[in-house]
Design a protein around this nucleic acid. Sequence first.
DNA 1: CAATTTTGTTAGGCCAGTCTAACATTCATG
DNA 2: CATGAATGTTAGACTGGCCTAACAAAATTG
Lengths: 224, 224
Amino acid sequence: MSVSELSSAAQDYLKMIWSATEWSATPITVGAMAERMGVKPSTVSDGIRRLAKQGLVTHAPYGSIELTRTGNDHAVEMVRRHRLLETFLVKVLGYGWDEVHDEAEILEHAVSATMITRIDELLGHPVRDPHGDPIPSPDGQLRPPQGVRLAAVDPDRPLTITRISDADPDMLRYFTELGLAPDTRLTVLAHRPYADVTTIRLPDRDLDIDLGPSAAESIWVIAS
Amino acid sequence: MSVSELSSAAQDYLKMIWSATEWSATPITVGAMAERMGVKPSTVSDGIRRLAKQGLVTHAPYGSIELTRTGNDHAVEMVRRHRLLETFLVKVLGYGWDEVHDEAEILEHAVSATMITRIDELLGHPVRDPHGDPIPSPDGQLRPPQGVRLAAVDPDRPLTITRISDADPDMLRYFTELGLAPDTRLTVLAHRPYADVTTIRLPDRDLDIDLGPSAAESIWVIAS
DNA sequence: CAATTTTGTTAGGCCAGTCTAACATTCATG
DNA sequence: CATGAATGTTAGACTGGCCTAACAAAATTG
Ligand SMILES: [Mn+2]
Ligand SMILES: [Mn+2]
Ligand SMILES: [Mn+2]
Ligand SMILES: [Mn+2]
């Protein structure tokens, strides 16, 4: 069975379960899935049962939700579609990086494997999407994600942004104004815990910025 | 209500009802719709009833099926999406004209109005799709289709192909081999009615070809 | 023009996906 | 560790879209 034969809902469930553990180890809950998909928990609970019946996840009532081998393969295929489509929308159709997520969320269910192949070729086999997230290869290989949350790094070391969470378009637009994007170089000047502020310096633009906790949690960096 | 809020099935029904009278005056029947959509007549009958309840078509049992003003607007919007997507797939992603119909048939339900606008701009506001069919403008204006079936024209007049039906990919591949496409110039040498053969000449390639009736019904031409 | 064939509709059933409401389990806290 | 709060599941209902089978209407034709 190919991933294309799954319903959109099933494809989204698998992708979301997979994504939950990409950047943090906390496994997904029914409630979180319901919230992110904009449905009620009972709907998700039911959907998970159907996925389990199809052998795509393992799940005992009140227990954890785990992808099977097959479920994982399909999830990775959907992640590949999503990220290639986001890249395509930015590079070919001139979308902003804050506009692509919702469009890709729909298109990923409609494009054929052929179209994904053509897009991949047209883009020259990109390995990261506009937000810095790695794009799985056709056979599901994936460079392990690099970086830690900005909120968690020590001050005064030269850093490079590896990814920015695409969850909040407004925040992405704010980051655009500030000139923060994947590959931007910066240094943390200080974390001020009780003020919940992280001050960063952009050496290339000679600029200091105060970031709140949600911003500092949305940016991943690596030593550079 | 925007066309995007209709189900895929409803969008396809409207588009099909509209398309039925684009190149011939015979109105669509329930049976023909069922056949083209690959479902049973009872399914279509039911679907038509739902469309009528939504005010998109008028239909009395056993009577004809007519688009309302709203239904027609939505149908034209779907035709615009379909044909822009076909053009995009050929021009940007390198598809052959025989490969685009099925892909567009799915994508048309998934793309946003924004994406259609971007595609239209990227392509420079094309007015015909890869098969020669006119692309409606954003406000639904449509150059009235030109041409008559090749099977119906008098011999010995210089003609230009205006469109080729995209219904049969195999036939499109055959036409590609023969060099028949929109804007190809040709002359009918003779119709041989009992043999059901139409002989055409391609002056630009100095070649004569015998076409069977299905081919001669699939090609529309205009005097040139 | 009556009978037969073709076409279309209705009835009844199934499934996925959604909801609300009721219930069960697990977690957290006093 | 008992209890209340939070979380998850089940039950029951509804819709759209599909089916088959039975039926109704219309069209064809001898
Ligand atoms: Mn999605
Ligand atoms: Mn992304
Ligand atoms: Mn379609
Ligand atoms: Mn076409």
